[in-house]
Design a protein around this nucleic acid. Structure first.
Lengths: 152, 152
DNA sequence: TTAAGTGCAAATATTTTGCTGTCAC
DNA sequence: GTGACAGCAAAATATTTGCACTTAA
C-alpha cells in the first residue's frame, strides 16, 4: 500500500494560483474537498461535501473545476472498473503512480505501488518511443476477503 | 506490438452457445461485427456496422449483447483515456493482456505486450492476495510522431 | 475596469429499463 | 410450447454548453 500522501494543505490552490488562475470562493472550497478526501470521490460526492461548506456551490462549477485540475495534471480521473456505473472518481495526482484494485464482490478499492510498474512505464517509454503523461492501471478481481476458494 | 490475433471466426458465437445462450439473428450479426473489427469500436459504431448487415438491429440489442459478452468475459471494455469523450470501446479479450497507449495529440491508439506487465500482474496476485479477473492499463501521452522535442 | 468565473436552464451523450410481442430451442 | 430475446419508448445517469450576472485582480 502506498504511504499516506504527505499532507500539503492548500497545495492545489497554490499550484493553480502560480499558473495564473483566479482563486474564487467556490474554487477554494472544491479544492479543499478534493485535497482532504479520504477516499476516491465522484463529482456528486464532491458537490455534496462542497455544499456542506457553502450551500451556494453549483454542480456545474464542480465539473468546471475538475476539468481545470485535469487539464493542469493536478488530479487523475479513475473509472474503478465501472463497478459503480459510469461515474468518474478523482484523486490528487500522487508523486508515484499506483495501481487500483477493485473487488468485484465487496467493491473495496485497494492501492498498490510497485517497482515493476515503474519499470514497465520506463519500458513503454523506451521501446515504444512514447512519452508518457498519465497512466491508469485498474484491476478487477477478488480481494483476499472475498476470494472464492477452489470448489471444495 | 501484439501479433495479430489468430483468426477464429465464429468463436464468440461458439462460446456463447456452449454456455447455453440462444443464438439469434441479431446476436450473430453483432458478434461478427465485434469479431472482425480492425480497430476498437464503440457501441454506436458497432450499431452502424451491424445495420449495414441487417437494418433491423436495435441499439438496445447492441448494448444488451455487449453486456452479455462482458459478463462472460469474452470482451474487454476500454476507455482509451477518454480521448473521445465518455464512450466505451470494445475488443475481444486477447489471449495475452496488452497495454493501450493513446496519443493526446493525434489520437492514435497503440498496443503493447510486455513480460514486465505479466510479471506485475503476478506480483499483484501474490503480494496483495488479489485474484485478478480483468485488467486495464491505459497510458496517455505523445507517440513518436507527435513527441514534442525539448525546447530547442 | 474587465476578463475570467459562476449559476441557472437547457442541451447532449451514453446507457438502462419496462413492457409487449416474437422467436430459438 | 415456453422462456429467452428483440424492439420501441421512455427513463436514468453523467456531463457540457449558452448566456446573463458577478467578482477577482
Amino acid at each position: 500500500m502506498p504511504l499516506p500522501q504527505t499532507e500539503q494543505p492548500g497545495r492545489l490552490q497554490a499550484e493553480l494560483m502560480s499558473r495564473g488562475m483566479r482563486m474564487t470562493r467556490q474554487r477554494r472550497i472544491i479544492l479543499s474537498v478534493v485535497e482532504t478526501a479520504k477516499q476516491h470521490l465522484d463529482a456528486s460526492q464532491i458537490l455534496r461535501k462542497a455544499r456542506k461548506l457553502d450551500a451556494k456551490v453549483d454542480r456545474v462549477t464542480v465539473y468546471r473545476t475538475l476539468n481545470l485540475l485535469k487539464r493542469h495534471g493536478l488530479i487523475d480521473e479513475l473509472d474503478l472498473m465501472h463497478l459503480q456505473g459510469e461515474k468518474h472518481f478523482y484523486e490528487r495526482r500522487p508523486q508515484r503512480d499506483h495501481i487500483h484494485m477493485a473487488c468485484l464482490r465487496c467493491g473495496k478499492i485497494a492501492e498498490f505501488e510497485s517497482n515493476l510498474f515503474d519499470r514497465l512505464k520506463g519500458e513503454i517509454q523506451r521501446e515504444c518511443r512514447f512519452h508518457i503523461v498519465v497512466t491508469r492501471l485498474e484491476v478487477g478481481g477478488y480481494c483476499a476477503d472475498c476470494r472464492v476458494m477452489p470448489a471444495s
